[in-house]
Design a protein around this nucleic acid. Sequence first.
DNA 1: ATGGCTAATGATATTAGA
Length: 260
Amino acid sequence: MRIVTWNVNSVRVRQPRVLAWLRRHQPDVALLQETKCTDGLFAQPEFTGEYEALGYQVAHHGHDHWNGVAVLSRVGLAEVQRGFPGVNRRPFDEARVIAATCGGLRLWSVYAPNGRTLADPHYLYKLVWFERLRAAVVPSVASAPTMVAGDFNVAPTDLDIYDPVRWRRRTHASPAERAGIAALCDTGLHDVTRDHLAEAGVYTWWSYRPGQFQLNRGLRIDLALCTPDLAARTRGVWVDTEERAGSPASDHAPLVVDLA
DNA sequence: ATGGCTAATGATATTAGA
């Protein structure tokens, strides 16, 4: 079973590449982030039909032209859950979380807030958002084989940053953000990428600015957090860096998890 | 230490990304 998580940075702009990627690599489930569209686009038969023609059922969660998350599955798509449970005042109602049961697995597509700068209120939002996510996934982790995957906007360790010194005063590397990831993992989740890609220089995001991708100046901020049963079933994890090349590419590459 | 680019918008600069 192949699961991919990919921040596509606008599904409208990326539609041809997303479809080509699905045809080429045949994932059973695709967890997408930053679709940057409303549910209305996915309600259009001529748009969603492109995925259905490849055998995928689609669930999307998007309110406006920011954020937006989706699950595409050809192994069933049930019990779709959009956003955090309970009451969510702004900005916690942003479309950053969707979960669904596919092929017996509980799969989450998540897009964490960026944080902007360490002094920005958005950074505090990011920290609280991680706590909300932690609370939301606890029942899933306790009851089903679960993968919480997506763009976490946090590099878990300095090995996950091309230049840790440069990022010391920025978001994505602060102790509080990393504690947010650790607290998430404390519920019973494990970051499977490093089990299979332990070396330095493994990244999932590179700035659009010139030279950054070519020089492999990137961050590993897209993660697949798995319950122990799924971690044990993982046969391979890989980043499709080829998909980051060329234009128009997303600034994130697909992260692929192959399960037995 | 800084800037470079991309996407979206009733837009021709601004916000956001990371």
